[in-house]
Design a protein around this nucleic acid. Structure first.
Length: 847
RNA sequence: GCCGGGGUGGUGAAAUCGGUAUACACAGGGGACUUAAAAUCCCCCGGGAGCAAUCCCAUGCGGGUUCAAGUCCCGCCCCCGGCACCA
């Protein structure tokens, strides 16, 4: 006998019950054997969270719920869906929090992870808890270190000097995002740059493939665009400007006839990169980055003091400030000159910090007439600004008020190239200079090599041993993992090197190669390395002796669907693509792109404002879940707006979805005497199939908000006028709602008499187009484009039939009176439009 | 500055192969049921005029194309996110 308590919807009880059943029945977990043999495998991935001390953020819940809805939907369509979750627990966030709170990360992180696990279970995600990953677990980072070694062994890891942000007050290295307008985010002290030897992965070797493959993968457009911009291919040329006074200048003839027979090795040349070789006649000076290696060579004695002072000033600025556009460009003349290779003109050489050593060749030819930055600089230092490109309607003498930068026009003031258009001139000039050894066509990428060294504590040690005799030596694979030693005080100190460099009994080791005295690398690796391969690990966590099992990997990878935030649209996705591509080239993976499909979700705001701790308007999930249940919370989050765009969380709005689930519950768990027979009402059944069609299509395209609206509309129709829906009307709705509200769906499915989980077996309702078809169409009738009435016509009715119906509609007839119908436009089942004009000037006026 | 994405009721938002603008929900108002409350159910809800039928206006602003424009084209304004001297 069901009791009263059994009949009321108690979300907290239902959800606790079903969490227990899922665990008991292993509903969401795969055994190793199941992973090996799964039919129709579907790898549903979401970006794993950083387990913060504050607990799961609504942003996380939003993202995970959206991904989980998709996974459950696929599962109900008969796929074997693998949906793992893990913890990205290394990195500067944990370390800084630990420094501030005084709790060591080795205590902090496990506590945070435990809390996250609890919260993740509570939201009802279909997570396989037997296959999780924690990047701080030595069993995991052993393989992160292994990955480093694979790249090292294949020549893709190398050491280079590179600048870091240094705060002289905190005595620590800062990440770029910790530098706010040139100052340390914590103490406000001005940041300097220091040069340190660091490890880099040669991702730039893969730039072209990383760019090219973007054409074939199914990703959000915005993400593809962000990747393209980041890789930043630009097509241009390197041009060589011999330094005046060094040997063997080319002849001074304007046409550049002197071929300068051999490209004389002893000639010092400044090589510039430009995308506009057509403007070379307008190059009135050359600018080197202050760090450029030729600065010393070109600087005259008279200018040396100024040059040195300027270089010192530049170095004191941090990299971030230097990248900000300042109002005035600055620079100094070196006293040196070089020769414009196209006409033999002597042009002065300057240094300026608007030229960056890290891009192109670290040197530019300045064309002030056709480049805004050069224009500003030339204006400041009163350098000449000639015109060499004329737009239509302009000529040589048209004054240049601002730089003319458009890549179209005709050359002027350019010797024998005058009259050529921009594109032809590029080819001709580069071709002619190349014949003299003074130019090469060249493609440059904005993408930099990936610096993975961190002078920090909370990360996996880089598995390298430095030996005086042998150089950097890989830690032998059998010695992995290189365990991160427990260091009580891991605060960075004045030396600016990693905290691990203070642990001599850890870093002093024998060289694996020669056995001599050697030291471990004391930097740890970037968190992005941890997350660059975690999806490979998930299905293979049953193996302790290999990072990923070939057979399992072949079945499950690449990832079928990846959902995550656009804040990782660039780096994380790019790095993981690179790692996969490299492993593919080593023969370790059968694919070279990790994610078949990627979708970026939107952001949640609250009551129209961005959420932030300082505003005190963050949504705290636990109390909401306690009050309404996870199902309501999930449903509401997905209802707020389109998943890929985000939405505005308004506290009161949750009552809508909550009421919907209550009504659904009552429609199933109705009083016995109200339970009607099994025959569905034809009109309701029609609506049902229309709803199945919409919901199926909209979930597949992540338009969850409208899918939910369609279900609400259907339930309203099925309950209209207080009627109790028939079982055949309501049972399919339980299935449709299941991806969003899995606990209540399970419970109602059980109460409808089914054994086991609604997610086992392909229970997604079948759509029958015949049942969904409308038999009567409501056709809007317009006169001159204005709606004057609607008529009901049999579906598919032809023009004459609809015209006849429409003409007898009183209001339509009134508007047609005295008018001549010139045209009639008929859109079947939708609309009829009479285009009319006054028949004659005679009888005006209507009734 | 550049690259994305947007501006539709009191609010979150629907509708973009051009075809009845405002689905669904919140907030608000009225009613039924109930001892009462909750829950449920029904009705109203863009602005203006009118007793009403009905008419006019309305999708950031200004033009245009079309029988027909929230949707397409041109020119602006504003908001959000990202990148930022990339030669």
């Amino acid at each position: 006998m069901p009791t009263e308590a059994d009949k009321a919807y108690d979300p907290v009880a239902v959800e606790a019950d079903w969490r227990a059943r899922w665990d008991r029945n292993r509903t969401n977990s795969f055994t190793l054997e199941e992973l090996r043999t799964a039919e129709r495998p579907f790898f549903n991935l979401m970006m794993f969270p950083y387990p913060s001390a504050e607990g799961l953020h609504v942003g996380n819940i939003y993202a995970f719920t959206g991904a989980d809805v998709f996974g459950r939907f696929k599962r109900m369509q008969g796929h074997a869906v693998f949906e793992p979750i893990g913890f990205d627990a290394f990195g500067i966030h944990s370390e800084n929090f630990a420094l501030k709170s005084g709790v060591h990360p080795t205590e902090l992180i496990p506590a945070n992870v435990a809390n996250f696990r609890r919260q993740l279970r509570r939201i009802g995600g279909m997570f396989d808890w037997d296959h999780t990953v924690d990047t701080t677990d030595p069993d995991y980072y052993k393989w992160t270190q292994w990955l480093f070694l694979q790249l090292f062994n294949h020549g893709l890891a190398e050491q280079k000097e590179a600048p870091v942000n240094w705060c002289p007050s905190c005595m620590t290295v800062l990440a770029n995002e910790q530098v706010i307008v040139g100052a340390c985010e914590r103490c406000g002290t001005g940041v300097e740059q220091r040069f340190i030897r660091q490890w880099f992965f040669r991702i730039t070797e893969y730039a072209e493939r990383l760019l090219r493959n973007l054409k074939h993968i199914d990703w959000s457009d915005t993400t593809l665009k962000a990747q393209r911009n980041w890789i930043g291919r630009s097509d241009g040329a390197e041009l060589h400007f011999p330094v005046a006074g060094s040997e063997r200048e080319p002849g001074r003839t304007a046409s550049g006839e002197d071929p300068g027979d051999e490209p004389a090795a002893e000639t010092t040349r400044i090589t510039v990169f430009t995308t506009r070789p057509d403007t070379i006649f307008g190059a009135t000076y050359v600018v080197l980055a202050p760090e450029h290696p030729l600065v010393d060579a070109v600087t005259s004695n008279g200018c040396r003091a100024d040059v040195e002072a300027y270089r010192a000033r530049t170095q004191a600025k941090d990299m971030v400030a230097r990248k900000k556009i300042e109002k005035r460009k600055t620079g100094v003349f070196t006293g040196g000159y070089c020769i414009n290779p196209v006409n033999g003109d002597r042009v002065p050489v300057w240094i300026a910090d608007y030229v960056l050593m890290g891009y192109g060749t670290g040197a530019i030819m300045a064309v002030p007439g056709h480049d805004e930055r050069d224009f500003d600089f030339a204006t400041t230092y009163e350098l000449p600004i000639p015109r060499v490109i004329a737009a239509p309607g302009e000529d040589t003498s048209t004054p240049l008020e601002i730089a003319y930068e458009y890549p179209t026009g005709t050359l002027v003031n350019s010797g024998r190239y005058d009259g050529l258009d921009v594109e032809d001139a590029k080819t001709a000039i580069v071709g002619d200079l190349a014949a003299q050894g003074l130019a090469e066509a060249k493609v440059t990428y904005r993408l930099h090599d990936w610096c993975i060294s961190r002078q920090r504590y909370w990360g996996p040690p880089i598995p390298i041993i430095h030996c005086e005799a042998c150089g950097p030596v890989a830690v032998p694979e059998e010695h992995l993992p290189v365990i991160l030693p427990h260091v009580e005080d891991f605060r960075p100190d004045a030396t600016g090197v990693s905290p691990l460099s203070r642990v001599s009994d850890w870093y002093e080791v024998a060289c694996p190669s020669c056995g001599g005295d050697a030291t471990r690398e004391t930097d740890v690796s970037d968190t992005f390395l941890d997350s660059a391969w975690y999806f490979l690990r998930y299905p293979s966590t049953d193996f302790r002796d290999r990072p990923f099992d070939p057979e399992i990997t072949r079945r499950w990878l690449p990832v079928d669907c990846y959902i995550g935030g656009n804040e990782h649209a660039v780096l994380h996705l790019l790095y993981s693509r690179f790692v996969v591509m490299a492993l593919h080239d080593m023969g370790l993976l059968h694919f070279e792109e990790p994610y078949d499909q990627f979708r970026a979700h939107g952001l949640i705001i609250r009551e129209g404002a961005k959420m932030s701790k300082s505003k005190g308007n963050v949504i705290i999930p636990d109390p909401i879940i306690e009050r309404y249940g996870a199902d309501t919370f999930r449903l509401y989050l997905m209802f707020l707006g389109p998943f890929v765009e985000g939405g505005d969380y308004q506290d009161k709005g949750i009552s809508g979805p909550h009421g919907f689930l209550h009504r659904l519950w009552e429609s199933v768990v109705a009083d016995d005497d109200q339970t009607p027979g099994d025959d569905p009402d034809p009109a309701v059944e029609q609506k049902l199939h229309q709803t199945i069609e919409k919901v199926t299509e909209q979930i597949a395209t992540l338009r969850y908000n409208t899918a939910i609206a369609a279900m609400m509309e259907y339930l309203n129709a099925a309950r209209a006028g207080g009627r109790a829906p028939a079982r055949a009307e309501i049972e399919p709705l339980v299935c449709l709602v299941a991806p969003f509200a899995p606990h209540i769906a399970e419970e109602l499915w059980r109460r409808l008499g089914h054994e086991g989980s609604v997610f086992d077996g392909a229970n997604w309702p079948a759509f029958d187009p015949a049942k969904a078809a409308e038999r009567v169409a409501r056709v809007a009738v317009q006169v001159n484009g204005k709606v004057r009435g609607t008529v009901s016509a049999p579906a598919g009715a032809d023009r004459e039939a609809v015209v006849a119906l429409a003409s007898s509609e009183p209001n339509v007839a009134r508007h047609l009176e005295g008018m001549e119908v010139r045209r009639t436009i008929h859109v079947p089942d939708r609309l009829l439009n009479f285009v009319v004009a006054e028949a004659a000037a005679i009888g005006s006026g209507s009734g």
